[in-house]
Each structure stands twice: as structure tokens, then as C-alpha cells.
Amino acid sequence: MSGFEGVVDVLKVTVLDVLPIIAVLVGFQVLVLRRRIANLSRVILGFVYVVVGLALFLQGLEQALFPLGKTMAAQLSDLDFISGAGRELLETVRWQDYLWVYCFAFCIGFATTVAEPALIAVSLKAEEVSGGTIGVSGLRLSVALGVAIGLALGTWRIVIGAPLEYFIMAGYVLVMVQTIFAPRVMIALAYDSGGVTTSTVTVPLVAALGLGLATSVPGRSPMLDGFGLIAFASLCPIISVLAYSQISQWYAQRYRLSSGAE
């Protein structure tokens, strides 16, 4: 069965991926720290779960979601679909013609971020150390919304062909301004959320989308314009998480003011 062989292959790759990490951990544990790890068998079991789980997860994505998602990304940005079936190909395309592409980018960005294992890990940790004041779902939803907006913006940029730098610089300026006003507790977490959003689930689909779009839009080169979507997907969540923390702070203050007045 091809699915089973696929799992074995992916398992090999995942084990290879984990080996350097284990080497570093074991090396320092044995040579430098020289302390016995508590619950060693549980920890080893945990590592086995992580490696097997990740391998199954990747194989499942490879088998079910990626082929479909990639074909869809290519089809949605295809000129035949843009011009409408049965009609003749449009001579020039306007950016409005790609409405479904932005819509797809938004939805798939949101959906894949919610399923991103690294983000699940960080939000679990955040809820644990904050004693529950930073909720798992609030954080994850705002990160997902950030990625969704980022990808919609990023696809729009590819269609209109504006330079990537301008968008990223504007985003940096926005982050700097927000940092001044956002509550200090959330700043590090917000910065972190930029890095965790783009790993196993989001990157392959997003790369396919960018490449498909840059190939199909007249006048874009896949080499120069296909890149940059991941940059949007890592910058926008920082903005959205900072915004989320500002809004919840503002609400909390208003609530306190109104309840204090009574």
C-alpha cells in the first residue's frame, strides 16, 4: 500500500530532522549538566509520540490536502477561470478579477494557521505561564486573522506588482508604533507569533499559491514576484496580536472605569 510506504519514508525524514536536536540535548545532558532526567521513560515516550505524530501528520497532508490545495491555487489563478468559463480570454486583467484568489488566500491562511502545530505549542505555553489570562483561543484566532489578512494582501501585491519592500517597511513602522502603546506583557509573545505561524502546514500551500499566481498574471516573473508571501504571513500576525492585546486592554480599562463609577 502506497500510503504505508509513504509513512515510512516521511518517518525516516522526520527522524533525521530530529537527530541533531536529540544529539544536542543528550550531549549537554551527559557532558555538561550530568543530572538524571526526571521521568526519563515518559520523556522518551513523548519524543516518540512527537516524531510519529509529525510523520503521520505530514504524510496525511501530503496525501490529502496538499495536492488538492495546490491544484486549487493553480486553478483559481488560472486565466481561464479568471475570464470566466466559455468566454474568450481577457486581453488585460484588472486586479479586481482576482477576487476569488484573495478570498482563497484569506480562508486558507486562516484555516492552516489554526491547525499549525507550532502555534498550538506556543499558545499552550502562553496560557500555562500567564495563569490563564492569555487565552489559547484568543491568541490563536488573532494570529490566524493576521495570517489571513497578510496572505490576502500578499496575493494582491503580486497581482498589482508593487515592490515587496514598501509593504514590509510599512509593516515594520506599524509594529514599532504599536510596540509603544501595547501592554508590555504581550510584546514578546506577539513578536514570537510571527515566527511560529509559518511551518509545516502553511508554507507548502502558500508557496504553491505564490508561484501559481506569479506564473499566471501577465508581466510577473515567478522568480522575482513569487517570493514574499511567507514574509507577509510572518509580519501581519505580529500586528494583529499587538492589536488584540491593545483592544483587550482598552476594554478592560473601560470596564474598570464604568464599574468603578457605580
Partner: peptide, 26 residues
């Protein structure tokens, strides 16, 4: 598609369990 979806669900479940058992504690 169905097999793939089942693999994805079991995989993510094992991963999250392994986080709590192995990666976080170490």
C-alpha cells in the same frame, strides 16, 4: 482523501500529546 484526513488527525493528536509528555518537560 479519507485516509489522508485520518492520518492528519491522528498525527496532530500524537504530536500534541508528545509535547506535554516530552518536549515541554525536557
Amino acid at each position: 482523501l479519507l485516509i489522508g484526513a485520518i492520518l492528519v488527525i491522528i498525527g496532530l493528536t500524537l504530536f500534541v500529546m508528545g509535547l506535554e509528555l516530552g518536549l515541554f518537560p525536557i
